[in-house]
Nucleic acid binder design. Sequence first.
DNA 1: CAATAATTACAGGAATATTTGTAATAACTG
DNA 2: CAGTTATTACAAATATTCCTGTAATTATTG
Lengths: 164, 164
Amino acid sequence: MPARPKAPASSAAAAEQERAILSFWVHVSDLLGYPRSVGQIFGLIFLSENPLSADDLVRRLGISRSGAGQGLKALQDIGAIKSAHQLTSRKEHFQMQTDLGVLVKLLLNARVLPKLEELSQQRKTLDLAIRENGPAHLVQRFDQLDRWRGKTAPLLELLKTFSR
Amino acid sequence: MPARPKAPASSAAAAEQERAILSFWVHVSDLLGYPRSVGQIFGLIFLSENPLSADDLVRRLGISRSGAGQGLKALQDIGAIKSAHQLTSRKEHFQMQTDLGVLVKLLLNARVLPKLEELSQQRKTLDLAIRENGPAHLVQRFDQLDRWRGKTAPLLELLKTFSR
DNA sequence: CAATAATTACAGGAATATTTGTAATAACTG
DNA sequence: CAGTTATTACAAATATTCCTGTAATTATTG
């Protein structure tokens, strides 16, 4: 019987549950535009009682060492995980950020809002230029965009407020 | 002098403006997870005073006929453009949806919300299962997720309300 | 401070996504 | 309803993204 030290209440069911949880985080990762492996890595860290090293991930996911490194870096950059130094080992270990609320704010700030801001800025510039010297039908197009903006701008403001 | 019938106030500047507007829509398209060509196609339709046919797009973007067809289909599916039948030609022509507010709602409903809903459902299932028979440290993880949910759920509700 | 262990940078290869080309289908015209 | 024009479906080609393997760099230990 292969050794499996931790809480294997019903070993098969537990394994299935782990699989489902990994799959959940892979979906989240995908929704946010991160590669599959990033979701898997976060999933394992979420699942694990103790902090994990890059080599742990290599072993359990079958990915390359550098792939693990890249994924961990991405997760650290957005603040989803943080380094947790182990006394017994020299390798760097990682655990999940305890306050996931912070994570959401960081994600909005780092990925979503900058893009939206840039688009909003671009739109404003174009709008001005077109109204200055563009053909009539394009002015009309930007009028349409303005009406759209009237409806969505509150939502954007809310997102911004939320992310502070 | 090559013929250019419409409003060429200052031909070079106008061309630059068109390029900037196309680029804007390509960015929007990318943000929403659509390929580049979809953004370009919508951009041209946005720019054009009159409805455009698939062949117009082929000519002006240098893409293939079937690529144009696929892009147009995607834009129709989300309601960004609509078919506008021309008396003079047998080809199908397209113009942009006049009410872009509708577009935002459609996008939310068709792309964003379903994914969020599915994740939310998955989370609920997992949470229940873990609390029923999972190890203590995982129960704790889901407690953390719950706190996160407490902060983001209102935002989700708002999105849903908004999209109706 | 030499020797070793761990992480990072980056070019090349594998996997995915997008675009094209062709062939089949559908719609219109005389 | 035969001939023509337009659209759609789908396999193959191309481009992009992601992952791996190696080499260079940094950190740690004795």
